[in-house]
């Protein structure tokens, strides 16, 4: 299937608005997350430095708790975008009638949801990359003396 056959049947301007809009929201979310984590890590290191070498910084799972909840917010945004794309077929005309007369019954839904699903997947990939960056910052920038024992990442806590 060609990419153009997976896009909503609207003008290119509308499609680019969707891509740029959701892309910008994604970047703002990721940048904000990065800023907050950097601040928290700096604060932890600063506090550890003030106290003594015996003071450990917070566990990474504590520092990352709920930090990727933005993925869920973005998922909601993408679902709304898909629903909005669906209503394009009822706006200004009832072009849904035409979509109901083509042989591929899934095409209408593919055209509504491919773009949001694609944007969400990008968000997921970038978030996982960001998580890797956070873990790397935590493990590499923290002097070993301040590091608590590392037991790996509890993925569920990232969202809660």
């Amino acid at each position: 299937m060609k990419i153009k056959n997976m896009m909503p049947l609207v003008s290119r301007k509308v499609i680019w608005t969707e891509i740029i809009g959701t892309g910008l929201i994604m970047l703002v979310m990721l940048a904000d997350n990065h800023q907050r984590f950097s601040n928290d890590l700096s604060y932890e290191l600063f506090m550890a430095g003030i106290y003594s070498a015996s003071h450990k910084i917070a566990d990474i799972n504590v520092m990352l708790a709920g930090r990727f909840r933005m993925i869920l917010y973005y998922l909601v945004l993408c679902v709304f975008l898909g629903i909005d794309n669906y209503f394009f077929y009822y706006r200004g005309s009832v072009s849904a009638y035409t979509m109901k007369r083509i042989s591929n019954r899934k095409e209408m839904y593919v055209r509504c949801f491919t773009l949001p699903v694609f944007m969400f997947l990008i968000m997921l990939i970038l978030s996982m990359l960001q998580l890797a960056v956070f873990v790397s910052m935590y493990l590499n920038y923290t002097p070993a003396v301040f590091l608590p024992e590392y037991h790996g990442i509890d993925f569920w806590r990232l969202f809660i």
Partner: peptide, 21 residues
């Protein structure tokens, strides 16, 4: 069904074209 519905076309006062295209 979807297999044979291509034998039918439809014009309506509600319009069934894609207004943006």
């Amino acid at each position: 069904t979807r297999k044979n519905i291509g034998k039918l076309s439809f014009a309506t006062s509600e319009h069934s074209f894609f207004p943006d295209l």
